[in-house]
Design a protein around this nucleic acid. Structure first.
Lengths: 112, 112
DNA sequence: CAAATATACATAAGATTCTTATGTATAAAG
DNA sequence: CTTTATACATAAGAATCTTATGTATATTTG
């Protein structure tokens, strides 16, 4: 993720899991476009960050892959395993708690 | 920061600047206790993360140091430079924007 | 009073996660 | 036909952390 700074470290995994929890199956390139779209172009997910992350999630048993041929192209479709679905919930709780902490420490509680 | 995961990466700098913007001067050990206190013990700022960060902020001209002797102890009191004050504002805006983005992408918009 | 804990700093090795750069290949658009 | 988009991948290096260790003084506790 190129987002001006390092803040993103560690949240990419959670984003991937969350997107896959909403889309049944996605392939890498599609994910980069989706992140762009959802962030109004403010976040750019680069391939150098994405692919190693997907591979790790697969190795960890959270994602599974199905190859598909579209014309002459190969896509690797990723989807959540059972364990992946469980872990998605954990990660989301974790990041929500983290954000709470940050807002508390930094006095960021929104101007709502 | 030991906070169960890597989420913290990159936000330590902002926390240090923010704390110093509220306290005029602080020393390292004091900062570790303050973070504990503000997070109800949920965040533990370790020395291995803290001291290198303080040194970098000083090297970057955002912090300045004054040694003080308390009894036979040496404390290094850090405070914000003019540039440090300016940068604190930037960093806070940055992290607030980052949190907004994360909430949008992850559908975390609080149950308010 | 001796031993353990708290205060106070520091650095080094290793892990993780990213950025940047590069490589391969097909398809579509200009 | 050349550029841009699609689609994957990896490798070198940077940044930031964890864990471990080291030094030294002060205070508390058994």
């Amino acid at each position: 993720m190129k987002q001006s700074n390092q803040l993103f470290k560690g949240s990419l995994t959670t984003i991937l899991l969350k997107l896959l929890s909403e889309h049944d199956k996605m392939y890498g390139y599609e994910i980069t476009k989706k992140v762009m779209e959802l962030s109004d172009g403010k976040m750019v997910l680069t391939e150098g960050a994405l692919y190693p992350s997907l591979h790790k999630l697969e190795a960890d048993g959270l994602l599974e892959v199905k190859m598909e041929n579209i014309g002459n192209r190969n896509r690797k479709y990723y989807s959540l395993t059972k364990q992946g679905k469980k872990e998605t919930g954990n990660k989301l709780k974790e990041i929500a708690a983290f954000i709470e902490q940050m807002q508390q420490i930094l006095n960021l509680k929104p101007s709502l």
